[in-house]
Amino acid sequence: MTEAKDERRPAGELEASVMAALWAADGPRTPGQVQADLAVDLARTTVTTTLTRLHDKGVVGRERQGRGYAYYPVEDAPGLTARRMHSELERDADRETVLARFVARLSSDDERVLRELLESGEQ
């Protein structure tokens, strides 16, 4: 068994990574599948504990699958509000807002340069 080096990360960071994996997945995922979806090296029990905690918080739902559960992200009424507000924010958020966005808008030249950079890096 490999030493799980990311075991000591704060619980909040584990929850975030697990939640991100669930949202990125197509359907309900078992703890084993979530473990495989994660880039971080976690023990299955840690993943299960994290999923259970998220379920207790009500941010993920679960359904019986075989002898265990499969988990899926919950989107309920608050989620819908969030989506409405997101479009509101999108309208407002032009380049002048100071929210630090992951990536800025690209020009067509930027796009070409980026593809070139990625290709040159892959060789």
Partner: peptide, 22 residues
């Protein structure tokens, strides 16, 4: 928006097809 979204740790996920993060 963040307060009404499902939060896990410090992450809030917004269900939108538009790729965005901040």
């Amino acid at each position: 928006q963040a307060e009404s979204s499902p939060a896990a740790g410090d992450l809030c996920v917004v269900d939108s097809p538009h790729p965005d993060a901040y």
